[in-house]
């Protein structure tokens, strides 16, 4: 464990807490893409199956349990509890256009052709594009609530910090995992135009609006 990975995990935790707080406090999931949340639940479910087979540390286990539980809790809030506020008309990204190519790629490019490893690879690839429905929804509505932009910023920073962690581990531990690194870079690149808007607008107290 290093400070970059730890701060990445904290940023990830923060993003999830911000999202839950936003939905719970405003009793509304307006502007939130349910499809991205479904993809995240799929990401954690397929990645953390090793919860039962390998123990890394109490921290690792606790975080895995929290990520799985919170992703399903978010889906419950969006599709059941506050479904009246779910903006179905703007959450129209076709998930199958993400899941199917990622599934094929996981079978073709992986470290080991075993069920657990292919599911882990699928999860890594899926996570890199899971935010697309959400970013698509923000571009479609042309704006996002400030709290939602903080959620996206924390979520984007989590994998950006993981990239620093991978550089650190390469130089100090001689460890690297190309699948995680390439997917992590793709994932972070997808946030770049959002990061630009967040820094130039939200941090100056303006509303996050996209040129429609």
């Amino acid at each position: 464990m290093n400070v970059f990975r730890l701060s990445g995990d904290v940023s990830h935790l923060l993003a999830i807490l911000i999202l839950l707080m936003k939905i719970w406090k405003t009793r509304s999931c307006a502007g939130i893409s349910g499809k991205s949340q479904i993809l995240f639940a799929l990401v954690y479910t397929t990645r953390y199956l090793d919860l039962f087979t390998s123990f890394i540390s109490p921290y690792n286990t606790a975080m895995k349990v929290f990520f799985i539980a919170s992703s399903y809790a978010t889906i419950y809030l969006i599709y059941l509890k506050f479904k009246a506020t779910y903006d179905r008309n703007h959450d129209t990204f076709r998930m199958e256009f993400l899941v199917l190519p990622v599934l094929v790629l996981a079978f073709v490019v992986n470290h080991d052709f075993t069920p657990l490893e292919i599911l882990w690879t699928f999860s890594i690839y899926l996570e890199s594009v899971a935010i697309l429905p959400q970013l698509f929804m923000v571009s479609k509505t042309g704006q996002a609530e400030t709290i939602t932009s903080h959620y996206l910023f924390a979520l984007g920073m989590y994998r950006a910090l993981y990239i620093v962690n991978w550089v650190y581990r390469y130089y100090f531990e001689g460890f690297y995992d190309l699948i995680a690194i390439i997917a992590g870079v793709v994932q972070t690149v997808l946030y770049c135009d959002f990061f630009y808007l967040y820094v130039t607008k939200v941090l100056k107290g303006k509303q996050l609006t996209l040129p429609a």
Binding site: H12, D50, H111, D177
Partner: peptide, 10 residues
């Protein structure tokens, strides 16, 4: 690709 024994990252 090299086999990664155990994924210790989240």
């Amino acid at each position: 690709l090299q086999v990664i024994s155990e994924h210790d990252e989240l």
